[in-house]
Design a protein around this nucleic acid. Sequence first.
RNA 1: GUGGGCGUAGCUCAGCUGGUAGAGCUCCUGGUUGUGGUCCAGGUGGUCGUGGGUUCGAGUCCCAUCGCUCACCCCA
Length: 416
Amino acid sequence: MSAIQAPRGTFDVLPADAARRAVLEDRAHRVLGAAGYARIETPTFEATELFARGVGESTDIVQKEMYTFDDGGGRSLTLRPEGTAPVCRAYLEHGMHKLAQPVKLWYLSSFYRAEAPQRGRYRQFWQVGAEAIGSPSAETDAELILLLAELLGTVGVREVRLRLSSLGTPATRAEYREELTAFLHAHEDGLSPEVVSRIDLNPMRAFDADDRSTAATMRDAPLLLDRLAPADAEHFARVRELLDAAEQPYELDPTLVRGLDYYARTVFEFASDALGAQSGVGGGGRYDGLIEQLGGSPTPASGWAAGVERMLLAAGDLPVAAEAVDLFVAQAAPEAASGAFALAHEARHAGLRAQMELAGRSLKGQLRHADRVGARYVAIVGPPGEGVGFRDMESGDQTELEARSVIARVLRGSSL
RNA sequence: GUGGGCGUAGCUCAGCUGGUAGAGCUCCUGGUUGUGGUCCAGGUGGUCGUGGGUUCGAGUCCCAUCGCUCACCCCA
């Protein structure tokens, strides 16, 4: 039990897990790259104001989940809690509006939120995200949704469901919120005490209460989807049309809300029943107002983010290729160390995956170790002047070679 | 922040109504006086999360505390 542990909510990525994550990264690269999305990385921390303005002052994230610190010079910085605002900041900072629109970007980065950790929820976590900035089209939204579906599919995320909705414009949302709040207050008798206490804080929550009476009352509640302005309704209909044409199944969920303030129009979320309480594996939507909110000119944009840990939790076994070792250089005696060292170095220079004995094992121990790391060949280096025992670990055959012909022999790959 | 479960070797765990620590796996060494995968033997490795208390004696009982974990909330 060591005195110092990884901080609460953080974890070490050990080699076995690192291999699975590498597979995921490769899949993301392939799926998003194929659609013309280019990789972007932004700083791990940003000006606190970016998130206060971009994510929304009223959100849980900004109110209680940010790691904020002073940089020593009176500037307030924050470990990024999400990726969309930073990408938009970069879009503005580098004048990407002059590029062909939309600018399509993706990232795989770590994020930080001071929440109570549980299964699938950490204080440092990783997300794959994609953003298309500069297009208002429903095609953009539908394409993004299909790309995320594709990614989840190729990674093998199980029991995936897609929930879809539209939030309309911020104005529509504000009006609807008032209407819903008024409805809830007018029907407090039929609502559970928890829901009532939360009416002004989070009225949408009333929709997914388990309480029977609350559920009955909510059947008559107004729905945001029914209040969409004509243009928004038309946009949403087009998104659905495209998803239908692509045979992407989804559930229409008028109660779907996303945690960040900047969303407008299309919103969606993929959930996996293979997970526990934190079932959302990825989600996103359209955020037409964000760029303007950050000081740019009005720019439509759309995007999503998916949790790496959650995708991996919900995925079955990923086929992880074993790392092959071409050559293990053993030493027959301590005097052979220099010769072995030189041979291993040369072998790597020649492009081989070569390892050498580093732990002072007995020769028997070295062979056993070579076997465990999966070495195809073992060179047993003798003292200066003597030859090298060259052993094929599959057949067990062994011959004597001169040291300088060992590498060529491995490259040729011939069995003995 | 609140509630449930759990904290014994690197890992997975055993340890009954209290008698001062075990197994399997891993790792190392030897059996093969310079050679792998099986087998056999041996060894390394633990302030039983921490601090108090009860007791002749506590891994085992009591209290506190810390940590992990699941859930609420919220979200990736």
